[in-house]
Amino acid sequence: MLKFTEEHEWLKLEGDVATVGITQHAAEQLGDLVFVELPEEGSTFEKNAEAATVESVKAASDVYCPLAGEVVEINQAIVDDPSLVNSDPQGAGWFFKLKLANVADIEGLLDEAAYKDLIA
């Protein structure tokens, strides 16, 4: 299941773990990233808490945790090479895997069609 947030994150759910990243639209808006800071594995977040930071040449932006949960894995590859987020934001440029506190929460997020309407 693929879901989106109004803050331009995507979530791909497998079991009770969602892989989280930023959308193509967000990556284009941010421009070439030069720095990514990810949360520590094992850290827990409430919905919409600041979980990661991305920086372009020009500015820093926060990435919010789209739902409450525990970070069970992070993508070190984007820390080592932030340009991966620009080149493949919805694939190799994923940010972290989140074990959802309540899997049913994901139903409240946007589906792909609703997200496309949002950015249209």
Binding site: G31, D32, K58
Partner: peptide, 12 residues
């Protein structure tokens, strides 16, 4: 104009 389609990094 803060940037063109190439983006800040490539423009620099």
């Amino acid at each position: 104009p803060v940037q063109y389609p190439a983006g800040v990094l490539k423009e620099h």
